[in-house]
Structures are given as structure tokens and as C-alpha cells.
């Protein structure tokens, strides 16, 4: 999987999660880039971050260290982590 493919798949995963998982309903869709900080820019909290970790495991077919993943704030860092996990799994 290329970095671009991983990025697009990650964005799709996060957008779908935000749409389905927030009880307040559909919010204005924010553009997600490699520089997006998931906590600062998307307002994701700790529970949502854990959920996203679970979804990343499902979507990418990898096992991740949840606590380590939670330290990755930027989309670019998460993509890198996914790529590394993908190659080692």
C-alpha cells in the first residue's frame, strides 16, 4: 500500500466515523489533510481516538498498540504508523 492509498483510506475511515458516531448528527465536513491535527482540528477526544484506533485495525487489517497510536496527533504521523505496522504485520 502506498502512502497516498493509506492516507485516503484513513481519511475515509475518520470521516465515516465522525458521521456515524457523534450523537449530535452531521456536522460541517472539515477537509482532512496530512497536516490535520485530529485533536485540535477535528475536535476528537480520547474515547473517539480509541474508537478510531479500533476502526484502523479493522480497515487496515493490522494490530496496533493503542496507547502508542494515541500519541500520534497529525494525520501524517498516523499514516506513517499505519505503513510501518502494515509492513511488520
Amino acid at each position: 500500500m502506498s502512502e497516498k492509498e493509506a492516507f485516503l483510506k484513513l481519511v475515509e475511515t475518520i470521516e465515516k466515523f465522525l458521521q456515524l458516531s457523534r450523537v449530535t448528527g452531521a456536522e460541517k465536513k472539515q477537509e482532512i489533510t496530512m497536516d490535520t491535527d485530529i485533536y485540535e482540528d477535528l475536535g476528537i477526544d480520547s474515547l473517539e481516538a480509541m474508537d478510531i484506533v479500533g476502526e484502523i485495525e479493522n480497515v487496515f487489517g493490522i494490530t496496533v498498540e493503542a496507547q502508542e497510536m494515541l500519541t500520534k496527533k497529525k494525520i501524517s504521523d498516523i499514516v506513517t504508523y499505519i505503513m510501518q505496522s502494515n509492513s511488520s504485520n
Binding site: 458516531s21 474515547l47 480509541m50 474508537d51 484506533v53 479500533g54 476502526e55 485495525e57
Partner: peptide
């Protein structure tokens, strides 16, 4: 229930 995930559900 709805949207059952690993760490949460609705």
C-alpha cells in the same frame, strides 16, 4: 443500539 465499535456504542 447503533454503531457498535470496539470502545463505544450508541
Amino acid at each position: 443500539s447503533k454503531n457498535i465499535l470496539k470502545y463505544s456504542f450508541l
